[in-house]
Design a protein around this nucleic acid. Structure first.
Lengths: 145, 145
DNA sequence: CTAAATGCAAATAATTTGCGGGGAG
DNA sequence: CTCCCCGCAAATTATTTGCATTTAG
């Protein structure tokens, strides 16, 4: 199935295993998910796979450049395919994750490069705020003054 | 010293304590720091203060709107004064944290509001990338092929 | 006095590490 | 036969919770 994975591994003297394939599949299927969610998905196919292996494999796949993790704000990082390149918008009111085109950030990236001498990596950290639905809703959120 | 804190607490029927003052002072002194760093700072003045209290106090101060936490990327969140309002740029090569004016983000915020119906909160999550120094440096970073 | 705040210890949660066995090449 | 990889259990690290004691107001 995934010739790329097999080859990439082989090129580095590493082995192809069902676990590695399963973890990569799970990352792809789930879009972006935490190690635990990925583990659950993998275990639905192969219950014996240990979460330790999931952590190790995610780490490996990341070093191979096949997946990448993003910090959505709280708790655990989420993993997604490397190709999966867009900006994450996380609503810290309801937790919804939206995705936006990376070119939204082009101007900002250019300014950061020019004015702050900083090469922006658009995909690694999410933008935080409130989504449309939560703005509408009167939502007596945190600050009840 | 900090009349504001005392008053804010009093308005909600909460009490002023030395621990609370110490934690707030530490947050201010340290700029942005993890709960553990804050705890260390507090304990340098009052060794008996427990880290549990630091967590609880940070949580409280945040609900009071006096401090705010930011996810710099990995591990623990960092706390800083509410006023301390700027964008964090984190280099994921060397870990350096730079601060930039929030108005850098104004255009992006406007576009997000218009095009994605998303109200950006500029200060909650950091932008990730590489700082000038690390771009210069040939730096045989992660992928040593 | 009384409710709120603290310290301490124990419970959780998330992630990492050490180790012995099993299997691919 | 050798080294990679896996599962398992235990170690770490970060954070939260329960409870008895203390204390600000």
């Amino acid at each position: 199935m995934d010739t790329t994975l097999r080859q990439t591994l082989h090129r580095r003297g590493l082995r192809m295993t069902p676990q590695r394939q399963l973890v990569l599949d799970a990352v792809r299927d789930l879009g972006h998910a935490t190690p635990e969610q990925i583990c659950a998905q993998v275990q639905s196919a192969a219950p014996a796979v240990n979460i330790t292996t999931v952590y190790r494999t995610l780490d490996l796949l990341e070093r191979l450049g096949m997946v990448r993790h993003t910090h959505l704000g709280h708790g655990a990082p989420t993993y997604s395919e490397q190709e999966h390149t867009h900006v994450h918008l996380v609503c810290h009111s309801c937790g919804a994750v939206t995705e936006a085109q990376t070119d939204l950030m082009d101007d900002l990236a250019a300014r950061l490069r020019r004015e702050c001498d900083f090469e922006l990596d658009v995909t690694h950290v999410a933008l935080s705020g409130r989504c449309g639905r939560c703005i509408e809703r009167p939502s007596d959120e945190e600050e009840h003054q």
